[in-house]
């Protein structure tokens, strides 16, 4: 800090960005935590197969593992790009 500091433009506060990024990644990692080790591999292979037919983004495949008492639900969602359904 010095006498000429007021001339410099203040950078955007970055803590808010950090907070939002962490919220998303922590929630995502928690949703797959404790699941079988093959989940990431399964996700990648599914992505490969889907890409044979539709050009989707890496982030388009979402795998969610939910546990209720006694049973587990593997939820899979693929976001298809707009306007490209059907060939």
């Amino acid at each position: 800090m010095g006498i000429l500091d007021f001339l410099k433009r203040k950078p955007e506060p970055s803590a808010g960005v950090a907070r939002e990024r962490l919220r998303i990644i922590v929630a995502q990692e928690r949703s797959t935590r404790g699941g079988p080790d093959y989940l990431p591999l399964l996700r990648n292979e599914l992505l490969e197969v889907i890409r044979k037919y539709v050009n989707v983004d890496v982030e388009a495949v979402n795998i969610n593992l939910e546990r209720d008492s006694g049973h587990e639900v593997l939820e899979l969602s693929v976001a298809l790009p707009e306007g490209k359904t059907g060939a």
Binding site: S14, A15, G16, A18, R19, L22
Partner: peptide
């Protein structure tokens, strides 16, 4: 630095975790 918005606050860390 927290006040300047450059660092996560106690509340931020508590909420995220």
């Amino acid at each position: 630095r927290v006040e300047a918005g450059e660092m996560l606050s106690v509340k931020d860390v508590e909420e995220i975790l």
